[in-house]
């Protein structure tokens, strides 16, 4: 398994903090491609952020309601390691 970091995307073109509103999964949960990892709100817009690959969440580093800067690591997960 390969460990990965999940970061808050840059949702606003002018930067600034983004609120993490809701986690869509909890540590230990397996998440499939397209499942909602979390929802975030910035600039009066609520965005669902989906998993781009199957993974198992290992830790959540932010609480619902926290405001974080884009690029902040907000969770960790494990994905299948790629094989040659």
């Amino acid at each position: 398994m390969k460990k990965i970091e999940i970061k808050m995307p840059a949702l606003k073109s002018d930067g600034g903090p983004i609120m993490l509103c809701r986690w869509g999964a909890q540590p230990g949960d397996r998440v499939e491609t397209g499942d909602v990892l979390f929802e975030a709100e910035a600039a009066k817009t609520v965005s669902e952020i989906e998993a781009d690959a199957p993974m198992r969440l290992t830790a959540l580093l932010c609480e619902e309601g926290d405001e974080v800067e884009p690029g902040t690591v907000i969770a960790t997960a494990e994905v299948e390691a790629e094989t040659e």
Partner: peptide, 14 residues
């Protein structure tokens, strides 16, 4: 690098 493995959320556009 160190891919996010989540959608990158294009900038909000009004």
């Amino acid at each position: 690098p160190g891919s996010n493995s989540c959608s990158d959320g294009a900038a909000i556009e009004f």
